[in-house]
């Protein structure tokens, strides 16, 4: 893809879809970071999701904070609305917990598997609507469930981006 022939939004869309050839990707890594990237990424993500709520921030592949009814909530790509933006969204998912060698062999190559399930539990958190895997935790048994990221939405929108946050926190 020739970058000159494309708008930066097209470039961002191609990046999100993983359609960029390595030279284009490499150039993107080396170039100064664009101030518009966040807005462009939100726009191309919004094109991709099958629902209308405005995306405020992506939390990961297939997981978003969106505006709904003046509030910020966590929503999956498939449309499952999990909880408020700063709550533990994993506890609204479906989960498979692997805690025996037999369980682990279902997702690892048996001849190489040396993870000790007495010490490490694999928790697979999935979208209740689609079965898409949102996160995989590796923790000691009974370790409290945590989400990896709680953004400071107010500081980000108002102080860093200099614009109003379109929801009430």
């Amino acid at each position: 893809m020739k970058e000159q022939a494309k708008s930066t939004r097209d470039l961002t869309r191609a990046l999100l879809r993983r359609e960029l050839a390595w030279p284009d990707l490499f150039r993107l890594m080396r170039d100064p970071k664009s101030d518009n990237r966040f807005d462009e990424m939100l726009a191309v993500l919004q094109e991709q999701v099958p629902w209308k709520e405005t995306i405020l921030m992506p939390l990961g592949e297939n997981l978003f904070i969106v505006a709904k009814g003046g509030r910020a909530i966590v929503k999956t790509m498939a449309g499952a609305e999990l909880c408020a933006w700063n709550e533990n969204w994993k506890m609204k998912c479906r989960v498979i917990v692997r805690r025996t060698v037999a369980d682990l062999k279902k997702v690892f190559a048996a001849e190489h598997l040396t993870i000790d399930p007495a010490l490490v539990e694999i928790r697979e958190w999935m979208c209740p609507a689609s079965g898409m895997l949102l996160d995989v935790d590796c923790v000691p048994p009974t370790y409290p469930v945590e989400v990896d990221f709680t953004p400071d939405l107010k500081a980000f929108y108002e102080t860093w981006l200099g614009r109003e946050l379109p929801v009430q926190l």
Binding site: G60, N62, F108, H112, T114, I115, M132, L134, V136
Partner: peptide, 16 residues
């Protein structure tokens, strides 16, 4: 029998 650390957004660790 440990793992290095967890992966990102649904990725797994290596088998050991």
């Amino acid at each position: 029998g440990g793992v290095f650390h967890k992966g990102l957004f649904g990725g797994y660790p290596a088998p050991g």
